[in-house]
Computed example of a mutant assay.
Amino acid sequence: PPETIMQTAYVCYDMQKLRILEDLFSQSRPQRVIIFSSSKMKVKELASTLKRMKFNVAAMHSDLEQSQREEVMKEFKNGRIDILVATDVVSRGIDINDIKLVINFDIPHDPEDYVHRIGRTARGTNGEGLAITFISTEEQFQFKRIEEFLDKEVYKIPVDSKFGETPLYEPEKYSNMRRGRGRPRKDGGKGKSNSRLGGNNDQRRRGRPRKEA
């Protein structure tokens, strides 16, 4: 990815991701933002949740007809949609200028997909962009593979103490995790939740989601 993309990350527990995201958007109104997730179900749920929070958002995934995708992209390109929540179906081949921020709500399965995702930003006239990645405990080793692929360490933003305890970045410690098994039962102090938005464990127990075309 271009050096003009500022790459950052939050190391957190699954159930803290949505709270940190909401806090980010409360500090600065989101505009021209793409949020990537690795499953259609997560994309649909996240888009629905953000709509309930009164954000101007749309979802993009392979369940949509081609005409629907084109309409969503047109609305996003014209600025009538502020946030696009998408699977990797739009990480390649979409050339929209002035994307201000790309967020990886969860880690892509392939390091090259990470590069394609964050490459959606830094395409405007000033050539600058920001990429933020949320890293849960079971995703740490996966993200370390991305850093090795990039041959650089991505800056980890300290998480505000108001979100509760957060894990250390120790990817080797979590290298033996298998898709949500053995994950420390931490929720950032908010208790249990039935929502799948907090993490990938529901998806991962069924096996790795197929990559969308």
Rank of each mutant, 00 (worst) to 15 (best):
N97H: 11
R92P: 11
V89F: 13
Q142N: 09
I96A: 11
M6E: 14
V90G: 06
I135R: 04
V89W: 07
Y10D: 01
Q7P: 00
T8C: 07
M15S: 12
N194V: 01
Y155F: 11
S26I: 03
T8F: 09
D151E: 15
D14P: 05
N201G: 00
K77Q: 13
Y169W: 13
G164S: 12
K190C: 05
T133I: 09
S193Y: 03
G198H: 04
S136M: 06
R19V: 03
F134K: 00
A47Q: 03
M73D: 04
I81R: 08
E165P: 06
K77W: 13
E147G: 07
T137K: 01
S37D: 08
F36M: 06
R92F: 14
I5A: 13
Y174W: 13
Q142P: 03
E148I: 04
E148Q: 15
Y155R: 05
A86L: 08
R32Y: 08
R145Y: 03
E71D: 10
Y155H: 14
E112K: 06
K100T: 08
D187V: 00
T8Y: 08
T4W: 11
E212S: 09
T166W: 10
Q66N: 10
I118E: 09
K100L: 10
V11L: 09
P158Y: 13
R204E: 02
H109F: 11
E212Q: 08
R69S: 03
A47Y: 05
I34N: 10
R123P: 14
R178C: 02
S26V: 04
G182N: 08
E165C: 04
D23A: 05
I34D: 10
Y114T: 02
K211I: 04
V154C: 12
R19N: 13
R32G: 08
G119M: 10
P111Q: 07
